[in-house]
């Protein structure tokens, strides 16, 4: 698969604090790549480095297989932190400046303004916009000229629920068109809903890197219940993959080694003459995984 962004061991320190520590990762074409971590974990610093705003102390990165340059940035649309525009210029004038820098035709302005539902406000000054509108204008700016990569830093931060839903829909729509997306967020829910891949950051360190689906499919426990709990307990210990058991009222919470299927488990007990009246798979969510990872890092 074509590599869009490749980062090799970049580091950035602010005084004694490691904002980013030896971070390496790769983003491939068509991925929706989530950069997940709590506030202050180094997400924005990482994005600022790969966009040329700040210099990393060591390490390197490349865009589209080449050294980063102005030309590579022109192929990327980005929304970093707060929307930054000239407050005394109108939405249109602001976008015109962006289009000029990117060497894109101004004829695209209308399309992106309509896409974020700001066309009717195009001749109003940026200063008069609500926060949600400012954020939408920033997204419009990032979409100018059909970028190959879209970088979004906390794109739904500070928006109302309706705004959040709108932006997420928009991101998914853009992703469907094959645009590679790099999304930084401290919201798990957001990453879970939008991303295909994820890198988890904490205190500048990468804790985990992989497919969101893989992380979600890790199932490590089952809830089991039946009429004869004692017998069930004894039988469980005979299961080759059995790991541990916690007794809860009228059910056991059981963990197994490796992957195991609910139907397979049901069949196992049925053969042994036990009819389960409760069988539930407890999927380990990204959230649990995330918290566990963070916990280990402390």
């Amino acid at each position: 698969m074509e590599t869009v962004l490749s980062i090799q061991e970049i580091s950035k320190r602010y005084g004694r604090i490691h904002a980013v520590n030896q971070l390496s990762t790769e983003v491939h074409k068509g991925q929706v790549f989530g950069l997940l971590g709590p506030n202050g974990s180094g997400k924005t610093t990482t994005l600022s480095i790969i966009l040329g705003l700040i210099r990393s102390e060591s390490g390197s990165f490349s865009w589209f297989g080449r050294n980063p340059s102005n030309e590579s940035r022109k192929r990327i649309g980005s929304v970093i932190e707060s929307p930054n525009f000239y407050p005394y210029l109108t939405a249109r004038q602001n976008l015109r400046i962006i289009a000029d820098i990117k060497d894109k035709s101004p004829s695209d302005l209308e399309r992106v303004l309509k896409l974020v539902d700001l066309f009717h406000r195009r001749n109003d000054k940026f200063r008069t916009f609500s926060f949600g509108m400012k954020q939408r204008l920033a997204i419009a700016a990032s979409l100018l000229g059909n970028p190959e990569v879209l970088i979004l830093d906390e794109p739904t931060n500070g928006l109302d629920p309706q705004g959040i839903a709108q932006i997420r829909e928009l991101i998914l729509m853009i992703a469907k068109e094959g645009v590679t997306i790099i999304l930084a967020s401290h919201l798990l829910d957001e990453v879970q809903k939008i991303c295909t891949h994820v890198a988890v950051l904490d205190k500048g360190n990468k804790l985990f890197d992989g497919n969101v689906g893989e992380v979600l499919s890790i199932s490590d426990s089952f809830e089991l219940g039946c009429a004869e709990m004692n017998k069930l307990g004894k039988l469980l210990k005979e299961h080759p993959q059995f790991l541990s058991l916690v007794a809860a009222p009228e059910k056991f919470i059981v963990t197994f080694n490796g992957k195991i299927d609910a139907s397979e488990l049901n069949g196992f007990f049925y053969q042994k003459g036990i009819v389960l009246n409760h069988l539930a798979e407890r999927k380990r969510t990204l959230e649990q995984h995330f918290l566990e990872l963070l916990h280990k890092n402390q």
Binding site: L51, G52, L53, N70, E71, R73, K74, S78, I80, E81, S82, N84, F85, Y86, P87, I97, I98, I101, K102, D103, A141
Partner: peptide
């Protein structure tokens, strides 16, 4: 207004 950041991100070099 942090527009210098926006300009650079968009594809302008600091020199330009």
């Amino acid at each position: 207004y942090k527009t210098i950041r926006q300009n650079v991100i968009t594809g302008m070099s600091k020199k330009e």
